[in-house]
Measured scan of single mutants.
Amino acid sequence: DWREIAKLAEEALKKQQPVTVNGQTFNDPNEIKKLLETAQKAI
C-alpha cells in the first residue's frame, strides 16, 4: 500500500535511517526521497 510506504519513507527521512520496502532496503536519503515522491504520486 503506497500510503504505508509514504509513511515509512517519511519516518526514515526524519530519523535518518534506512527503510525496507517489499524486501528492498533503501539507505540513501536521495533514494528514500525518490521513493516517497513515487508513493505520493501513486496515492
Rank of each mutant, 00 (worst) to 15 (best):
D28L: 04
Q16L: 07
A12H: 02
P18L: 04
A6S: 05
Q16I: 07
Q24L: 13
T38Q: 14
Q16T: 06
Q40T: 11
K15A: 08
L8N: 06
Q16F: 12
I43V: 10
F26T: 04
K15H: 14
A42C: 09
A12E: 01
F26W: 11
D1G: 14
T25H: 08
Q16G: 15
A6R: 11
K15Y: 13
G23N: 05
K7D: 07
I43S: 06
F26V: 06
L8Q: 08
T38I: 13
Q16S: 11
I32D: 00
T20D: 04
I32R: 00
T25F: 10
L36C: 02
A9L: 15
R3G: 12
T25M: 09
K33R: 15
D28G: 12
N22L: 13
P18R: 06
N30S: 13
E10P: 00
E4C: 07
P18W: 06
N30T: 12
K15G: 09
L13G: 02
Q17H: 12
K33W: 11
K41Q: 11
D1I: 10
K7V: 10
A12I: 00
K15D: 07
E11V: 05
N22V: 04
I32H: 00
T25N: 05
P18E: 06
D1C: 10
L36F: 07
A39W: 03
A39V: 05
A9D: 00
G23W: 03
L35R: 00
Q17I: 14
L8V: 08
Q40I: 15
K34L: 13
L35M: 06
E31N: 04
Q24K: 14
K15I: 08
P29Y: 12
Q40M: 14
A39E: 01
Q16Y: 09
L36M: 07
Q40H: 11
K7A: 07
T38L: 15
G23S: 05
A39H: 02
Q24F: 13
D1R: 15
E4K: 11
L35N: 00
I43Y: 04
N27R: 15
Q24I: 15
F26H: 04
I43N: 05
D1M: 14
E31G: 04
I5N: 01
F26E: 02
Q16R: 14
K33S: 08
K41A: 14
Q40D: 04
Q17V: 12
K15Q: 12
A39C: 04
K7T: 09
T38D: 10
A12T: 00
A6C: 11
F26R: 01
N22E: 05
E10V: 08
V19D: 01
W2Q: 03
V21T: 03
L35G: 00
L8H: 05
F26C: 03
P29I: 12
E11N: 08
E4M: 13
E31T: 08
V19C: 06
Q24N: 09
E37I: 08
I32M: 03
L13C: 02
L36Q: 03
K33M: 12
F26D: 00
E31M: 10
T25G: 02
L36I: 07
Q24G: 04
D1P: 08
T38S: 12
I5C: 03
A6F: 14
I43E: 05
T38E: 14
E10M: 14
P18Q: 07
E11H: 07
T20I: 13
A39G: 02
V21F: 11
L36G: 02
E31Q: 10
I43R: 03
T25W: 09
Q24V: 15
Q16C: 10
P29M: 12
K34D: 09
K14E: 10
L8W: 08
E37L: 12
A6D: 01
Q24Y: 11
K41H: 11
F26K: 01
K34R: 10
A42N: 13
E4A: 08
Q24A: 05
W2G: 02
D28M: 03
E4V: 11
W2P: 05
L36D: 01
L13H: 03
F26S: 01
E11D: 11
K33C: 06
K15N: 15
T25E: 05
K7G: 06
K33D: 03
E31S: 09
E10T: 11
E31K: 05
G23I: 00
A6H: 07
K15W: 13
V19P: 01
G23V: 01
A6V: 14
Q17D: 05
E10H: 06
P29A: 10
N22D: 05
E37K: 06
L36W: 12
L13V: 04
K34F: 07
K7F: 13
V21Q: 01
A39Q: 02
G23C: 05
K41N: 13
T38F: 15
F26M: 06
L35Y: 01
K15E: 09
N22G: 09
K34H: 11
N30Y: 14
A42S: 09
F26I: 10
A42I: 14
D28P: 06
P29F: 12
N27T: 09
D28A: 05
T25A: 06
T25I: 08
A42H: 15
K15S: 14
T20A: 06
R3C: 14
T25D: 04
T25V: 14
R3S: 13
V21E: 00
N30V: 14
K14N: 13
G23L: 03
Q17S: 12
A42V: 11
L13D: 01
K14Y: 14
W2A: 04
V21L: 12
D28E: 10
T38V: 13
L36P: 01
I5S: 01
E4P: 02
E31Y: 07
A9Q: 00
V21A: 05
D28F: 13
K15V: 07
Q17G: 10
N27M: 13
N30A: 14
L13I: 10
T38R: 15
N27A: 06
D1L: 12
K14G: 08
V19Q: 01
G23F: 04
E4W: 11
W2T: 02
V21S: 02
T25Y: 10
T38P: 02
Q16M: 13
L36E: 02
W2F: 05
P18K: 07
E37M: 06
T20K: 08
D28K: 07
A12G: 09
K15T: 13
W2Y: 05
E10Q: 11
A42K: 09
Q17Y: 08
E11Y: 05
A12P: 00
Q40S: 08
L13E: 01
E37P: 00
E10Y: 11
A42E: 12
I43A: 06
Q24P: 00
D1V: 07
I32T: 02
L13K: 01
K14F: 12
E37Y: 07
R3F: 15
N30R: 15
V21Y: 09
A12W: 02
Q16N: 15
L36R: 02
E10D: 08
Q24W: 08
L36K: 02
A12Q: 02
E4H: 08
E31F: 09
P29R: 12
G23P: 01
T38N: 10
Q24S: 08
E31V: 09
T20H: 09
E4S: 07
K7Y: 13
Q16P: 05
K15L: 13
V21N: 00
V19H: 01
T20P: 01
K34T: 11
A42W: 14
E4N: 08
K41F: 04
A9F: 08
I32A: 01
A9G: 02
T38Y: 09
E11C: 11
I32K: 02
E31I: 10
L36Y: 07
K41L: 14
E11R: 07
A6N: 02
A9I: 13
A42Y: 14
D28N: 10
K41P: 02
K33F: 09
K41G: 08
E37G: 04
Q40G: 04
T20E: 07
D1H: 14
P18H: 08
I5E: 01
L36S: 02
L13Q: 03
V19F: 10
K7P: 00
A9H: 01
K7S: 10
P29H: 09
A39T: 03
K33I: 13
P18A: 13
I5K: 01
Q40A: 07
N30M: 11
L35S: 00
K33N: 06
N30L: 14
L13S: 02
Q24R: 13
D1K: 13
G23Y: 03
L13R: 01
E10N: 07
N22A: 08
A6K: 09
E31D: 14
A42D: 03
D1Q: 11
E11S: 07
I32Y: 01
L8M: 13
I43D: 04
N22M: 15
E11Q: 10
N27L: 11
L35V: 05
E11I: 08
W2N: 03
I5T: 04
N27Q: 11
N30F: 14
L36N: 01
Q17F: 11
I32G: 00
A6Q: 08
K33V: 11
K7E: 07
K41I: 12
P18T: 08
K33A: 13
K34M: 08
N27C: 04
L35C: 03
A39Y: 03
T38G: 06
K34A: 11
N22K: 08
E37N: 06
A9E: 00
A6M: 15
V21R: 01
P29W: 09
I43K: 03
W2V: 03
R3H: 15
W2I: 03
E11F: 03
